[in-house]
Simulated scan of single mutants.
Amino acid sequence: MNPTELNKYWTDIYFYLRYQNQNEDKISHQGVRILQLLDKCEYIGIKEIAKNIDVSHNTASEHVKRLIHKSWIHKERSTRDERMVILRLTEQGRQVLKRNANLDEGKLEQILARMTPSEKQIIDSALHLLSERAKNATNS
């Protein structure tokens, strides 16, 4: 397997198994990326968002303001450092993220129901390994 093949598999999987009606949320790609960051990182503020999505502090701040206005995220003071504002997903934000970044669980259940136990184990092992290696790749 090479990276080109892996990317083809990944894009095929996402294309066919994504949730439909994603456009009803009216969220930008940057907005989805911010929601993903908040989902994956416990303590994150504007500075970290700007760095992670490679935009200026002001641009990140504008994106965050829009997401707060839509009630998809909220701000709270850090218990570690009162000067720091931490951003968190709301339940509504979690649902928007699910519709715009996850695979459709109903479609996945249909596919998994047609697989043998050994096929399910192969998929589980491979995706678990790739997930763990991906986490390590972003931390280096």
Rank of each mutant, 00 (worst) to 15 (best):
V85D: 10
I13M: 14
V32T: 10
I86E: 04
R133S: 02
E48D: 14
L129M: 11
S118Y: 07
T116W: 11
K70L: 05
T79A: 15
H29I: 08
K51H: 13
H29S: 08
T116M: 09
A126Y: 04
S28G: 13
P117G: 11
Y9S: 07
H57V: 13
I111S: 09
T11N: 14
L6D: 01
I68W: 12
A134P: 00
N139K: 04
Q92C: 05
E62A: 13
M1K: 00
M1D: 02
Y14I: 10
Y16K: 06
P117F: 07
G31I: 02
K65R: 13
R99H: 11
R88Y: 00
V96P: 01
E109Y: 14
Q121N: 14
V96D: 02
L129A: 12
E42T: 05
S140I: 06
R94A: 12
D39G: 03
N136I: 02
L37D: 06
Y14G: 12
K75V: 01
S71G: 03
L112V: 11
R88W: 00
E105I: 05
Q20P: 04
R99A: 09
I44R: 03
W72Q: 05
R77V: 09
I86N: 05
E48L: 05
Q36D: 10
L38R: 02
L103M: 12
Y14A: 11
Y43N: 07
R77W: 02
L6S: 03
L130F: 03
L127C: 09
L112S: 11
Y19K: 08
A137L: 02
I122K: 08
K40Y: 08
Y43A: 03
Q20C: 05
Y9H: 04
G106D: 14
Y43T: 04
N21W: 04
K65N: 15
I44L: 08
A137N: 01
G106K: 10
I123V: 15
N139E: 06
D54F: 07
K135S: 14
Q92V: 04
K51R: 15
N136M: 01
Q95L: 08
N52C: 08
H128R: 08
A101D: 15
M1C: 00
I13E: 14
A101I: 12
N102L: 09
S118A: 09
M115G: 08
H69W: 12
H69P: 12
L35S: 01
Y16R: 06
E91N: 13
E132Y: 05
G93C: 07
E5Y: 07
D12R: 00
V55I: 12
S61F: 01
R80H: 07
V64M: 06
H128M: 08
Q22K: 10
N58W: 09
I46T: 12
T90A: 01
I46H: 03
L89W: 05
N21S: 12
S125F: 09
M84D: 02
M84Y: 04
Q36R: 09
G106T: 11
H128P: 01
H63M: 10
D25F: 15
R66K: 13
E76W: 10
T138H: 00
V32C: 07
